[in-house]
């Protein structure tokens, strides 16, 4: 090869850059995160599949509905009514009481940084927490 040195160095640099994920992870894939589902409450406002992929849009809808249209009751497909509230419904003690065991698991895994929590208050996660406080 002519200019072999330079070309090989170039190829190596290229390969190193392009294979970055392979050597960066060096074969170590953390396990798929498992979220902790509520113990008592088995029914979410929508199906699991729906919530998995579209919860952000649902929440976006909720916030507009609550703030701008003053419609605060959400009618689930099965007819149940829910108070549209991230803090008080989704993250209530009965449901996803711990942000770190629910929201954060997937968000951290997939590198998603939602700005909900810039304002909204995640539930307290000290074990002593009393459910009565939520009222």
């Amino acid at each position: 090869m002519y200019d072999g040195g330079k070309i090989i160095v170039g190829i190596i640099i290229g390969l190193v850059l392009l294979t970055f994920p392979i050597w960066y992870t060096h074969g170590m894939a953390p396990k798929r995160p498992e979220v902790k589902l509520p113990e008592k409450e088995k029914q979410c406002v929508q199906s699991k599949e729906y919530m998995k992929t579209k919860h952000m849009q649902l929440l976006d809808l909720w916030r507009d509905s609550v703030v701008r249209v003053a419609q605060r009751s959400y009618v689930a497909p099965n007819g149940t009514k829910y108070d549209m509230s991230l803090q008080n419904t989704c993250m209530s003690a009965e449901c996803h009481a711990k942000k770190t065991e629910f929201c954060d698991r997937c968000h951290d895994y997939t590198g998603v940084v939602p700005y909900c929590w810039d304002c909204h208050i995640p539930p307290k996660e000290e074990p002593k927490e009393k459910p009565e406080e939520m009222h």
């Binding site: 074969g27 992929t53 997939t110």
Partner: peptide
């Protein structure tokens, strides 16, 4: 159309670590 990002990442991480898996959904 939205996709299940966690499962996708499981798949892609499997590819990159040479432990391929096909997660559900």
């Amino acid at each position: 159309f939205k996709a299940d990002v966690v499962s996708i990442k499981e798949l892609t991480m499997g590819l990159v670590t040479f432990r391929p898996v096909i997660p559900e959904g």
